Amino acid sequence: MDDLTSKKCVPCNSKDIQPMSEQAANELLQQVQGWNLVNEDGVVRLRRSWKMKSFTKGVEFFQLVADVAEAEGHHPDLHLVGWNNVKIDTWTHSIGGLTENDFILAAKINSLHVEHLLRRKAAV
């Protein structure tokens, strides 16, 4: 099993790209600690939430995520609710489902050093 952080997202505009099965998604989910599969309006997505120290720390976190997303060419939905509640949803918008790209992005987000931004230490 390859480490997802060592992989690169592939372009999502290929006509051959298809959403992965729920079984395949559940297998990859084991490699992205803290993320969950959610089904909203028939679209399966990856989701993770964090609590930040402040609103500005949430914005700083989003900038780090944006840098990763731009480098990968794969862009998640970013939500900052209230003053410190951050949520990220990722799925491959062009096909309306999950691909390996979403798990690669989640793994790379997990590898960011963000402890200084978090309200409390993440559970191990």
Rank of each mutant, 00 (worst) to 15 (best):
M1P: 11
M1Y: 14
D3A: 12
L4C: 07
T5D: 11
S6W: 08
K8L: 09
K8W: 05
C9G: 02
C9N: 03
C9A: 05
V10K: 13
P11A: 11
C12D: 03
N13L: 08
K15C: 10
D16F: 05
D16V: 03
Q18N: 11
P19S: 08
M20A: 04
S21W: 14
E22F: 06
Q23M: 09
Q23A: 12
A24D: 15
A24Y: 12
A25V: 08
A25N: 07
N26L: 11
N26T: 06
L28Q: 14
Q30V: 13
V32Y: 09
Q33I: 09
Q33V: 10
Q33S: 15
L37E: 04
L37H: 04
L37M: 00
V38T: 11
V38H: 01
V38N: 07
V38M: 09
N39A: 11
N39I: 05
N39V: 08
E40M: 08
D41Q: 09
D41T: 03
G42Q: 02
V44D: 12
V44G: 06
V44A: 00
R45K: 15
R45Y: 04
R45Q: 15
R47S: 13
R47D: 11
R47V: 07
R48T: 03
R48Y: 00
R48L: 06
S49E: 15
W50D: 00
K51H: 15
K51E: 13
K51Y: 11
M52L: 15
M52F: 11
M52A: 15
K53D: 01
T56E: 13
K57M: 10
G58N: 07
V59D: 09
E60G: 13
E60T: 14
F62P: 05
F62R: 09
Q63Y: 14
Q63K: 11
L64A: 10
L64S: 07
L64E: 10
V65C: 04
V65W: 03
A66R: 01
A66T: 06
D67Q: 13
D67N: 12
D67I: 12
D67E: 15
D67M: 12
V68C: 07
A69K: 01
E70K: 15
E72W: 00
G73N: 10
G73W: 03
G73S: 10
H75G: 06
H75P: 08
H75T: 06
L78K: 05
L78R: 01
L78I: 10
L78P: 00
G82V: 02
W83T: 15
N85R: 13
V86N: 07
V86M: 07
I88M: 03
I88N: 01
T90G: 12
T90K: 00
W91F: 12
T92W: 02
T92Q: 00
T92F: 04
H93N: 08
I95Y: 06
I95S: 04
I95K: 00
I95W: 06
G97E: 11
G97S: 08
G97K: 01
E100T: 04
E100P: 01
N101Q: 06
N101T: 01
D102G: 01
D102K: 05
D102S: 00
A106H: 01
K108V: 03
I109E: 04
S111D: 12
S111T: 05
S111F: 07
L112T: 09
L112R: 08
L112K: 05
H113R: 14
V114S: 08
E115N: 15
L117E: 02
L118F: 07
L118G: 09
R120C: 11
R120I: 13
R120Q: 13
K121V: 11
A122F: 06
